[in-house]
Design a protein around this nucleic acid. Structure first.
Lengths: 221, 221, 221, 221
DNA sequence: GATGAATGAGGTTTCATTCAT
DNA sequence: GATGAATGAAACCTCATTCAT
């Protein structure tokens, strides 16, 4: 198969995996079912993705790539606006993205938890063989810091244009916002179609509160 | 066996499970190994906990119970102080607890994700049989809302004593703080012994920032 | 406990075992259930019968003892009649006994199959430890040949009084009759309460035919 | 796998099972050992036969099929002879078959005891799920009556050609012969390699006696 | 002696993964 | 490349039997 054709097929298989992952979660998903969903056999699936872990990482990579693309386009859209506005747009983007794509957000979270738990670079022996040998794992490592870098850059821009306080460590703020977003997602949604109020709290309101807090933290008074 | 003795043994088995869970994670933990760790056989372990899922829920229940106990004692210690101070102590408590007990925090997160994803009460068919029949699942359901209720009460107290803004929905703030804490945990720690800086950000500083944000959100100006 | 008392209790336990054996068969019977049926615990049951096999043998012994008693009383009743009549009474007795006590007949069959398969005396190593150490096994060995001997004696008596052909090996006839009876039982009944016709053959008729054949084989013409 | 290949493998597995069953008996046979004997793993064995019970039934089915085949060829061989001779050949065939294949004879006996004890068609709830769902159980049900039917037909033929008494119910005679054969087997053999005399009775003589009785019962005088 | 708890052996099942064709 | 069959690991379960009290 030509590379382009192969890649196309890979995309289709990833989509099938996403459907199954969405239905039953990563752990309960069976390679068999994913193959069936894609209309192929297990072994063929394995010829594309050498392990279930790798398939997961493929989904994760797609998720991160998608997220980063959105970061870029959001930044482009906000080029003329202040750094504060750009930064807030990114925060909102991340929350919206996670809310709309619960599977992707879970995948990303798992990924970052994994690399965090095994340290960076050093004790990679903790990783399973399946992960260490995954192409997608390597691809992910190449881009994993981009979301943070882009956010930091936008905060720097805000500092320079005077829209953002200059006494803040941009990376710290980035992490704080990232944390708040993740927390919101974890609390709010366990599946995309489950957005009913929690303890009578309207979730849209909660999201606004989170963003307002971030905005207050950042903006120059 | 007398109930007290049986319960004692159960506690020991749960501890053994925690050791193994900590070492290799829930998924990779083998019942056989947990039994070995406890110095008993698999079958005996099964006679106490009918399934691996149930054992997980037992750990989860212990975690939540422990957390709630800490909530109570923290509230007691802060009885004479303002509601704001009490509330902040609770927030800090939760973060510290999660940081120190990564396993517990994971267990609790899993639990809340699970009940959230299956809805409350209605579509319980999604739950596996092993879960639905678990004693610990029922016990957890009885106390799962306590942390939120206690926090809300403390915020109300703060409203009354004038230390906390009165234009806030206490439950919303509670959820926001809960989310921020979870997010922090997710970002920061994947295992207790892994608190080195992230992107050169000192994590203690990050925690302080999170708490400061919460404090600013709450306090009356 | 005094021996008499102990023996009494043993009898009760055997009865409980019979009830359970009758309900579900030897293999499916659980020691637990037998104990429950007797209103005691498993361990107590074990203190009387050291193994399930031994309990089976106890039932078997009771069965054989009972059968032999009936042989004796039948022989006594037929003392004044011809040897042919006595012999036929014994044959009939055996069939009736087996029909009425399916469990006993199964037990006896199992027993004879077992000792046959392990040979007599020589290769007793094939026997399980549970059997070799069983008191009842030893008791059974003491009386196992009695039914055959008594039958042979009665046939001899018939030869002498001229009612039975004298060209027959009495033991061979005994075995032939024993075989026919067992076969009848095996074909006819799998449980006492299941005597409906088989392939439209009335089973009473079949029994009569069997006995008539035996009679014809034996009697002097 | 093509059906033919699959079926071939099944036959091999059944042979392995027979070897183990012969060595240690149905009850003591371990699936693990049968798999080892066949050079495969337990799980693969299970993929062919869903339960130990089913594997037993497979052996039983093979036994009955084999027996029936022998019935047919015997009947063919005796086509030119009288019905009496044909019938006697069948009786002898059955005894010889059982004697030579103790395992098969046990399997068949167990099967007939089982269906007898659960009744025909009506209270099938007594059967275990493993049995009810067995393909071989269904296959057995289809052919279980053939041996009886074929015997009855041959007796009818004997009646017509004048070699067999016409005052007998053929099915009753069939059952009587079946019973005598089973009884003989039960008494005589517990394993094929165990044909030493019983109580000094030569077993060949006993067999002849049984057959002579049958012959006398049938033949027209 | 009687009891509740524990053991060991083995049946059954589910899956990720690999092999042979 | 694609396929059906096979594997190995581990969950889960039942029961005869034994231990400790």
């Amino acid at each position: 198969m030509k590379d382009s054709k192969k890649s196309l097929k890979e995309q289709k298989l990833i989509q099938a995996a996403e459907i199954v992952f969405n239905k039953v979660g990563f752990t309960n998903a069976k390679m068999e079912d994913i193959a069936a969903e894609a209309g192929i056999t297990k072994v063929t699936l394995y010829s594309y993705f050498q392990s279930k872990e790798n398939l997961q990482l493929a989904v994760t990579h797609k998720a991160l790539q998608l997220l980063i693309d959105k970061y870029y386009s959001t930044l482009r859209e906000n080029k003329e606006k202040t750094g504060l506005e750009g930064t807030m747009s990114i925060f909102k983007l991340f929350i919206d993205f996670s809310e709309k794509n619960f599977l992707y957000s879970e995948a990303l979270l798992n990924y970052f938890a994994m690399i965090r738990s095994t340290g960076y670079g050093d004790n990679k022996e903790k990783l399973t063989e399946g992960i260490r040998e995954s192409v997608y794992f390597r691809k992910l490592q190449d881009i994993q810091n981009l979301p943070f870098k882009l956010t930091v850059q936008e905060i720097e821009r805000g500092k320079n244009d005077g829209s953002i306080r200059d006494d803040l460590d941009p990376m710290m703020v980035t992490l704080a916002a990232w944390a708040a977003s993740i927390g919101y997602i974890k609390v709010v949604s366990a599946s995309a179609n489950n957005l009913k109020p929690l303890f009578n709290v309207d979730l849209e309101q909660l999201k606004k509160l989170q963003l307002k807090s971030a905005n207050e933290l950042l903006r120059k008074v």
